[in-house]
Amino acid sequence: MSFLRVSAAIATALLLGVIQEGCSTGPTTVRAASVKDDKDRHPAPDFALKDADGKTVHLADYKGKVVLLDFWATWCGPCRIEIPWFEEIERTRKDKGLEVLGVSMDDNGWEDVKPFLAQMKVNYRVVIGDDTTAQKYGGVDSLPTTFLIDKQGKIAAIHIGLDGGRKDFEDGVDALLREDDAPVNAGNGGVPPAVAAAKQ
């Protein structure tokens, strides 16, 4: 192997190491205390998914709001444990600017999800997800996976699995609600700046 090839291999390895370190939120639960600094947040990918009434929901619809975006499924036991937490978080913080949005990853769609939502008396909006959306969010290989999105449409925290508990979500949401509102950019067609940047 030539010197150049060895150098290239070392440089690639170092670069991957730097990238991985830079993405160090990792698969473990992000604690509320470590909701990322604004400079470390990345735009939450936009999507267009249908809710139970057949209306198309875009993440961009939630400009200026804190969004708790929960990927879940009816067959996921740990997801079921979180649902009452999210119902309470939505009920107590909706008027402060929080929206909870569930993204169901059930293959059978509303056939399974509608009766489940009725049974669980879910009070927040739910859409049916798809592989395209999941891929935009890193694949979502395990459920529940929950993203806290700030008012500028950036991912501020990621919770994978049930670790951390309800208080972590509450603390994270409250921290984001306390942040200043994003400046409105009238020239972007109503799309939050962060999401608009993600589309470019």
């Binding site: 990238i19 991985q20 830079g22 993405c23 939120t25 990792g26 698969p27 990345h42 735009p43 990918p45 935009k136 969010y137 890193g138 694949g139 290989d141 395990s142 990621i158 994978i160 699995g161 993600a198």
Partner: peptide
């Protein structure tokens, strides 16, 4: 974002 999100997988 594109580079980091896949690394979030368990």
């Amino acid at each position: 974002m594109v580079v980091c999100l896949p690394l979030l997988r368990p």
